[in-house]
Amino acid sequence: MLAAAGLTMRFGGLTAVADLSFEARAGEITAVIGPNGAGKTTVFNCITGFYKPSEGRIALTHPNGARFALDRMQGHRIASRARVARTFQNIRLFAGMTVLENLLVAQHNALMGASGFSLLAVLGTGRYRAAEAQGREKARHWLDRIGLIDRADAPAGELPYGAQRRLEVARAMCIDPVMLCLDEPAAGLNPRETDVLNNLLLGIRDDGCSLLLIEHDMGVVMRISDHIVVLDHGKKIADGSPAEIRADPAVIAAYLGEGDEDGVAA
């Protein structure tokens, strides 16, 4: 699905990611973990086109066999063509717009095409109206799934924190991604909200979308991941199933810490 080979990212003299190679398989949840400053978000930004990697290749293969070199694509094309969606560590919703509008903005490219670059929409042709109704239906589907159907017309910025997190996931899913990258989706959530989020993410995986996940909450990582990549100081120190990672001495030494209760125990 997604394969990074020899990925290196340097900022001036600082090497944030050094010669990293890993693979995220189709239909799985792959977690990237590591201590603060290990380079996780940098890897994400390289994959989603916010940074251009200094060296290395990132290749994405769609289920239909189409291949994309993400390291050479423009930022917005990675979302529109390669269909890689992402969320952000600090929630980035369109706070002044309503929940529904947030989900429709995510369908921008599909609606732009149907509206003749908005010209037909200004004239109010039936073709655009049909497309917009379809877009609303997709939004309704996701609002149902994240339990926000009653708040559809409320400004996104007024939602509680947990709901904003879920909305950001739903918004990313509205671009019909083949791969969804989540940057600490469980940060700041209470245990109940975390459970809801876990189920949402597992549901998305079962629908056939692959997930790449950065997470500090080991409970979430161990429960939902199929595969874990561990980074430390920009290098990969381990790579395997949750059970293997839990037993890996290098990981315990570098990251989980010995006898760390809320870590391995979960």
């Binding site: 989603t48 086109g49 916010f50 930022g75 917005h76 094309r77 990675i78 979302a79 529109s80 063509r81 969606a85 992402r86 952000f88 980035r92 919703l93 369109f94 706070a95 002044g96 717009m97 509008e101 429709l104 903005v105 995510a106 921008h108 490219n109 918004r171 990313a172 671009i175």
Partner: peptide, 17 residues
């Protein structure tokens, strides 16, 4: 809508293609 989204958050716009 894309204009208004741009006003709210340019980075998020880019991530949505």
């Amino acid at each position: 809508r894309a204009w208004e989204a741009l006003r709210e958050d340019e980075t998020a716009c880019r991530s949505l293609g």
